[in-house]
C-alpha cells in the first residue's frame, strides 16, 4: 500500500465516541497511576507507530499541539503523513517545543530533561510523553506511590528508558515542573504523572 493510501486509512471509525473512549482511559490512568486501562484497537496507524499510541494521538493531538517523534518514528514517512493527515499536528522543531512526544523505542530514547518541563509559572506547559512499551507486566516491577494511589501500586512495563528510575527521581525533584508519561502497551495504557513516586524494587 502506498503512503498516500496508508495515511488516509486507519483513523477512528467513529471519531466522536472513539476519542471519548480513549480519553477516558487516559484520564483514568492518569488519575490512578499504576492502574492498567484496557483499550480495544481503535486506530491502525502504519508501523512502527503502535495502534495504542496512534489512538492516543488521534484523541489528544491537533494543530495546536506540536509533536516530537523519536528517530524510529521520524524515519517513517508513512507515520509522519498518517499523523499529519489525521491530527493536523505540526512537527516540533525541538523536543523542548513538543506538547506530545511519541517514542517507539523507549530503551533508546533521549533523556527526559530534554523535553519541555514547563515553567514555574506554567508547569502545565510541559511535554507529555507517549512511550510504546511491549507490555505492562513483563518488565522489572515498579512500586508506585503518590496521588491517585490508595497505598501502593505495581506495574512492570517492558523496554523502559535507560536509567529510568533515576531519571524519574530527577523529574520529581523539578515539581511542579516535569514531564508526564503515558505508557502505551498493546492492549491498554498506564500513566505516570509527575507526582508518582517510584519505590525501587529492583535495580
Amino acid at each position: 500500500m502506498d503512503i498516500a493510501a496508508q495515511s488516509i486509512e486507519g483513523g477512528f471509525a467513529d471519531p466522536v465516541f472513539n476519542a471519548q473512549t480513549v480519553f477516558r482511559a487516559v484520564m483514568e490512568a492518569m488519575a490512578r497511576p499504576g492502574s492498567v486501562q484496557l483499550l480495544p484497537t481503535l486506530a491502525r496507524p502504519p508501523a512502527p507507530l503502535s495502534p495504542t499510541a496512534g489512538a492516543v494521538a488521534l484523541a489528544l493531538c491537533d494543530n495546536d499541539t506540536p509533536l516530537w517523534l523519536d528517530p524510529a518514528l521520524h524515519a517513517s514517512a508513512a507515520v509522519i503523513s498518517w499523523l499529519g493527515f489525521h491530527t493536523g499536528a505540526p512537527l516540533a522543531n525541538t523536543p523542548a517545543d513538543a506538547h506530545f512526544a511519541f517514542v517507539a523505542t523507549p530503551a533508546e530514547m533521549m533523556a527526559l530533561d530534554g523535553f519541555s518541563q514547563g515553567t514555574q509559572d506554567y508547569p502545565d506547559r510541559s511535554t507529555t510523553l507517549i512511550l510504546q512499551v511491549g507490555d505492562l507486566a513483563s518488565g522489572p516491577p515498579l512500586l508506585l506511590e503518590g496521588p491517585g494511589i490508595e497505598t501502593s501500586a505495581t506495574i512492570a512495563p517492558a523496554r523502559m528508558p535507560r536509567h529510568f528510575i533515576e531519571q524519574w527521581k530527577q523529574n520529581a525533584k523539578r515539581f511542579p515542573r516535569g514531564v508526564d508519561i503515558i505508557l502505551a502497551a498493546a492492549d491498554g495504557i498506564a500513566c505516570l504523572p509527575r507526582t508518582t513516586r517510584i519505590k525501587t524494587m529492583e535495580a
Partner: peptide, 28 residues
Amino acid sequence: FAYLDEQTKRMIRRAILKGIAIPGYQVP
C-alpha cells in the same frame, strides 16, 4: 455530541490531564 466541537473537547481534555498531573494547580 455534548454540544462542544471536537477540537474544543481535545483542548479541554488536555487541560484536564495536566490538571490531574499537577494537583491543585490551575490550568488555563
